Amino acid sequence: MNNNMHGIDHIGLTVPNLDEATQFFSEALDATVIYDTYKKTELIKDAAFTKKRLGIPNDMAERAIRMIGLPNGPQIELFEFVGPNQAGPVAPSDYGWQHVAFKVDDIQEAVAKVEAAGGKRNADPTDLGGIEAGAGNQFCYCRTPWGSTIELIAYPTPQPYLAQAERRKWDV
């Protein structure tokens, strides 16, 4: 066991508009602003060191960074970039981080909040099966207003994997 590893501190997410993304996460997932690392009122960070450190193309620049917190679990660090070489959000079938899952108590309520905040569900909530099955255990993939994929997941019933796993998933 590695005593140096504690878990996920935050998840970085690039968004087209920092303020609109903050509003979405606030309305949909009860997030709050913790702090702004880099404000839009500051000069755009387009130095070679910034581009190398972040691994972004030379024609892109860092516009703003904000750390938001959810009621439980890791934070989300929102990034806004400017420049002509920015691609849209990836689909779950593309290489890279596919989605972020948010555990909720009431999946119907959570989906309604995501939609009221401008997001869209891909399909209705679906029962979890196999080693994750249980009464009320469901998931629902949704898209943020800018097209990134999020998952809402609820498992009020203990999941069958617990009977055979050496450790349980981190849980709030």
Score class of each variant (00 low, 15 high):
N3D: 15
N4K: 13
M5F: 12
H6P: 02
G7E: 11
I8G: 05
D9R: 02
D9N: 06
H10N: 04
G12M: 08
T14A: 14
L18F: 07
D19Y: 10
D19S: 13
D19K: 09
E20P: 01
Q23F: 03
F24L: 00
E27W: 06
L29K: 09
D30H: 12
V33Q: 11
Y38I: 00
K39A: 10
K40M: 04
K40I: 15
T41W: 03
L43A: 04
I44V: 09
I44M: 06
I44S: 04
K45N: 06
D46N: 08
A48V: 10
F49D: 13
F49A: 13
T50K: 03
R53W: 09
G55Q: 13
G55I: 14
G55W: 10
I56T: 00
P57F: 14
M60H: 04
M60P: 02
M60T: 09
A61W: 04
E62D: 07
R63D: 13
I65S: 04
R66D: 04
R66T: 03
M67L: 11
M67E: 11
M67G: 04
M67I: 12
I68H: 02
L70H: 08
P71W: 02
G73F: 07
G73V: 14
G73Q: 02
Q75G: 10
Q75E: 15
Q75R: 12
I76R: 01
L78W: 00
L78C: 06
L78D: 09
F79S: 11
F79N: 05
F81R: 05
V82K: 01
P84G: 13
P84S: 12
N85R: 11
N85G: 13
A87H: 14
G88R: 07
G88L: 15
P89W: 08
P89H: 09
V90M: 10
S93V: 14
S93P: 11
G96D: 15
W97D: 14
W97M: 14
W97V: 14
F102A: 03
F102V: 15
F102N: 14
V104R: 06
Q108E: 15
A110N: 02
V111F: 05
A112C: 01
A112L: 01
A112V: 08
K113I: 00
V114C: 08
V114F: 06
A116R: 13
A117K: 12
G118F: 00
G118D: 01
G119P: 07
R121E: 11
R121I: 12
N122D: 13
N122S: 08
N122A: 08
A123S: 12
A123P: 02
D124E: 14
D124F: 05
T126M: 15
T126A: 11
L128F: 05
A133W: 00
G134H: 02
N137P: 11
F139I: 06
F139S: 08
Y141F: 12
C142F: 06
C142R: 04
C142E: 02
R143Q: 12
P145F: 10
P145Q: 12
P145L: 00
W146D: 15
G147R: 07
G147E: 15
G147K: 05
G147F: 01
E151D: 02
L152A: 00
I153D: 04
A154T: 15
A154F: 05
Y155C: 01
P156M: 09
Q159V: 02
Y161D: 03
L162P: 03
A165H: 10
A165L: 06
R168A: 11
K169P: 05
K169I: 11
K169A: 13
K169M: 12
W170S: 12
